[in-house]
Design a protein around this nucleic acid. Sequence first.
DNA 1: CAATAATTTAACCAAAAAGTTAATCTTTTT
DNA 2: AAAAAGATTAACTTTTTGGTTAAATTATTG
Lengths: 222, 222
Amino acid sequence: MVHSIICVLFADINRLVKPKSKSMDSSTEEKIYDAARRIFILKGMEGARMQEIADEAGMNKALLHYYFRSKENLFKAVFKDIFSKFFSRVRGTLNSNITAKEKLMVFIDNYIDLIAANPYVPQFIINEINRDPKMLKSMMLESGAEPQMVLSMFLNEVQSNISSKIDPRHIVVSLLGMLIFPFAGRPLLQMIYFNNDVEVYDRFLMERKEIVKNMILKFIEG
Amino acid sequence: MVHSIICVLFADINRLVKPKSKSMDSSTEEKIYDAARRIFILKGMEGARMQEIADEAGMNKALLHYYFRSKENLFKAVFKDIFSKFFSRVRGTLNSNITAKEKLMVFIDNYIDLIAANPYVPQFIINEINRDPKMLKSMMLESGAEPQMVLSMFLNEVQSNISSKIDPRHIVVSLLGMLIFPFAGRPLLQMIYFNNDVEVYDRFLMERKEIVKNMILKFIEG
DNA sequence: CAATAATTTAACCAAAAAGTTAATCTTTTT
DNA sequence: AAAAAGATTAACTTTTTGGTTAAATTATTG
């Protein structure tokens, strides 16, 4: 399959958060930023500690306050970045000129690859928006993300190309649920249904590409 | 529909957490327990403050330590309770003697009602297990919950009654994703796709009963 | 009722965590 | 090279938060 080759080639492009690299060519501010991203995504705003972020970045805690005035500040910068990057990545997968149905299939493949490379991001975003829903408003204004466009765009296409009278929002929500839940609920699901076998669960996640495509198609085409 | 009548009649039975009641007939310990449940579910272990729980319970912070030695202790008691209650409720919906397919349909209806009455519970459980996966092990041993039974039970039935060669775990995960995600992602979804209209979103959630049943059936029956 | 036990409170303590500062080291500018 | 600006550190302060205690109040029991 050509597509899976493309997936492999571009796998690291999907990574929103750089893994800690030993080559120290990035600036101090960048190092703080990256460390903060990793810690915040893993532990959330409330669970993260400034000291921990400083340690992760390999430097003094005071520097975090030197570059970003407060934890709140640092978090907001990081969150805004992750949020907009994530949504623009998602939107990016929809900009080819193939049929609507094909586009939907490519979307599912890419979305699973994207989350596989950033398994904590969707849950992180959902949690933080639950914690402080006001953030979402400013996020949508400041970042050019316009996340509502992401799926309504092609779902209008799907809607018109395929005979289906279902509210497209039900399809979006079902689709996202099927894609995100196996990642968000991994520790639970992996233990209960997979005897905590990491490799088997990883395979399971990749199998989902075909499963979800199949499921959505059957539903849309009746 | 008879079923919706039953749903209305038993609506409050689904509620795992009592809303704060003005009638003060419950014991101090119970009041603390209930307040802790509400706060922990809303803010999580890390986000919750002992003072906040004391305020919610309408009493002194020292009392929380008098009845439960530590925050950790209080949290574990509450979490264990919520976890096992939730899973036993879920399992409870599967104990009628109707066909496997019918059982699946009833399950979907009941599950949505259950989460509608406890919208934060699934995400809370997932988050806390992510934070401390060790908890899950002890939870499964101590509480008689055995959550793995919940769906494998009837999915074996479904599997044998209906011709379908799909790994039932894919069906479980898809199903749970479709059911849980609209609740977990509510603030995000409601804002992006529903102009923050609470009533419309509530209706959307109830519509999902038919949508999800439809979707699962189409998938299983091919 | 008196004594004893259980409950409740206000005030306090210690540890953790965010945030600050002044002094030092490094780089850039003149 | 001297001065200035920028980056970095160690040590410190403040605030938050979980936890304690001793005294007061209430309930229970002999």
